[in-house]
Amino acid sequence: MLVRKACIRDVEEMHQLIQMYAEQGLLLPRTVQSLCEHLQCFFVAELDGRIVGTAGLHILWKDLAEIRSLAVHPDVQGQGIGRQLVERLIEEAAALGVPQVLSLTYQTAFFAKLGFQVVQKETLPHKIWKDCIHCRKFAHCDEVAMIYYTTAPVPVHA
């Protein structure tokens, strides 16, 4: 299994995988256009020539990035693919100098095993006002906010 940066030829399989979980209400839906526009943010897990996992790292502010659209095909769950994708995103955030990685998730046990800690959503003003305010679940969000602290230096706030 190979974890690598996503490329255009991966978009259709990424979209199908994300949509599978979006239809269950577990992920926000993404359009093919959105995936293309943000392709440089995404990584994929490839196994035997097919995309079996995907996840994106979106920079929200100088000190915060978010893991989005983490999806692993049901046929290969439990094989460490999600863990490898998240670890790759954490490495990417640290390399970019981003000290915190956010996940809004229902999979708290999974993220806790990887070192994420539960935080109050109210401590994330850049996320709340950038994206969440436009979400249909904003008034009754049931996702849990979890943060991973990278070893990146904390940027000076201006």
Rank of each mutant, 00 (worst) to 15 (best):
T123C: 08
A109N: 04
C41W: 06
L85W: 04
V32Y: 13
F42C: 03
V32G: 02
L96G: 02
V52P: 00
V32S: 08
I67T: 03
L102V: 04
F43G: 00
V119M: 09
C132Q: 02
L60W: 09
P125G: 02
S34P: 08
I59E: 13
S34F: 15
W129A: 01
V86I: 04
F43N: 05
G49L: 14
L89A: 01
H134D: 14
I128T: 09
Q84G: 03
E37S: 13
G80S: 04
G80T: 03
I67Y: 09
G56I: 08
K137W: 12
K137V: 10
L47Q: 14
V72H: 07
I90C: 08
I90D: 03
I128L: 15
Q40C: 11
A45P: 03
S103P: 07
T54S: 15
A71G: 04
Q107P: 07
T31I: 13
E92K: 08
Q84P: 05
R88G: 01
V118K: 11
F116H: 01
V119W: 13
A55C: 15
R50K: 14
R50S: 13
T108H: 06
K137S: 11
A139H: 08
I133P: 11
H58T: 11
P74R: 00
Q100L: 14
A112G: 01
L57F: 07
A65W: 02
C135G: 03
F116Q: 00
D131F: 14
